[in-house]
Write a protein that binds this DNA or RNA. Structure first.
Lengths: 244, 244
DNA sequence: ATGGCTCAATGGTCCAACCAATTTCTGCAT
DNA sequence: ATGCAGAAATTGGTTGGACCATTGAGCCAT
């Protein structure tokens, strides 16, 4: 089973050519997230290809999360694109059951701890300010709305991933966040879900601010542990009520 | 900025509906990798949608690596599809450079350590035998071929992920494995790349066999650290030779 | 200002062709 | 019968044009 360093040539490459051209355009124009890019009709005309071809190309970018299409409005950049991008599409077969949730939590434990540690090492002053701001917002939301601070909680964690100096953390966790949302939509949780994890948000922040990677890692691990406990409690309650 | 518990309704969903129907079809027919699925024209007719819509849907699956289209032949399954799939398109800006490799290594450090620890807790006797076997094969390959044991090395690590009791570890790391392959194809590394990491494979195995999670985690971290060092040495050498 | 109206712009879908690669069939030479 | 070259059918890839659905901007009456 010898392995040659050859990848099969692409029989047709119109779509890829379109994307390459478009990536070049985005770089030349220095377009960033949120910006609108040319309409499909314009692209088709300029690139001398059918609009359908343009659409297939954009569909690929959309699937990769690089772009967002809004009917009636336009197509907008959602991420940073460059000519040399490497895509690692990852699809996981995961359901809404307890086991799947627990498995994603194990991944999150691994990544969250590492991200917190890296953040403690690399975060600059501006990063710390931003994280602290998100923390304040979250704590305020927690107190005023008594617990329902899922959105603010998420933004706090996101700011940590973002300051880890490694965009992969944010990307991976973001996908898992979606899975959790799926779960919460199904009304099968305990009442005050993230309640117990609340105090650890501040302790994590403090360890990061003190540039103490191992301390930050430890606090992050504690936080995940409380979420796991909540999940187990929810599962036990479900068991009791005799769910399928 | 009040946040209602409402998610924006999906304006259009033809493509998604097509994919859902197709996923259902694949499951009912118990189709697996390598199998051919119906023609675009047939799908369009059966699902009462335009062939264009079918194509956009299949383009998405193709981008996700779930399917492979061969002009003149047909569309073939490349992976396992199910109705409840979670997609995580990971995008790395800047393909083969040092930074990208380092970033994937940071992810791998987080996951590898956690997987080793979990494996030490959950691995049964059969798992240990399997891991030990892979280790023997790798060590033998290392000695006979003097270092070039990338394939066997990979299989050893895979066996650990597989015994971690959480399939997500293997899937995530597998996606990154491809990136490393690409890197090695480019002849820009130090000569004996994985050399220094060799002894830690056995120490990891020993800690797992002893059901010592923290020990296993520590050894895994040491292993990754040596790889990071190798990478840094390679990068420094590149710097010296004045590469673009 | 506010709410409703029109209207142009834009993405979403459809159709009917034709092109290009592949596979299958056919028929002839051996 | 067998083997093989060429024709024909199959299948994904591309094109052009049409129409629908949503959005957003401009306008107007209230």
């Amino acid at each position: 089973m010898t392995e040659f360093g050859l990848s099969p040539i692409q029989a047709t490459a119109r779509d890829d050519a379109v994307l390459k051209a478009l990536a070049g355009f985005v770089m030349r124009e220095a377009l960033g997230p949120g910006q609108r890019l040319p309409t499909e009709r314009i692209l088709a005309e300029r690139l001398k290809v059918s609009r359908n071809t343009v659409r297939e190309a954009l569909t690929r970018w959309e699937g990769l999360g690089l772009v967002e299409r809004r009917q009636g409005s336009g197509t907008y950049l959602k991420g940073v694109v460059s000519l040399d991008m490497l895509h690692m599409p990852l699809t996981l077969a995961g359901g809404n059951d307890f086991t799947s949730l627990m498995q994603t939590l194990e991944i999150r434990r691994a990544l969250e701890a590492e991200a917190a540690a890296l953040c403690a090492v690399r975060a600059g002053q501006a990063d710390l300010v931003e994280i602290g701001r998100k923390l304040d917002i979250m704590e305020q939301a927690f107190h005023t709305r008594a617990g329902m601070s899922a959105e603010e909680d998420w933004e706090f964690h996101q700011s940590i991933y973002r300051s880890s100096g490694n965009p992969l953390f944010e990307q991976i966790i973001a996908a898992m966040h979606e899975l959790f949302h799926r779960f919460w939509e199904h009304p099968l949780g305990v009442r005050d879900f993230g309640h117990a994890s609340f105090p650890y948000h501040r302790t994590i922040y403090e360890r990061i601010a003190a540039h103490d990677p191992e301390g930050a890692r430890a606090e992050a691990l504690k936080l995940i542990a409380t979420v796991e406990d909540d999940l187990k409690r929810g599962a036990a309650k479900l068991e009791l009520s005799g769910q399928k």
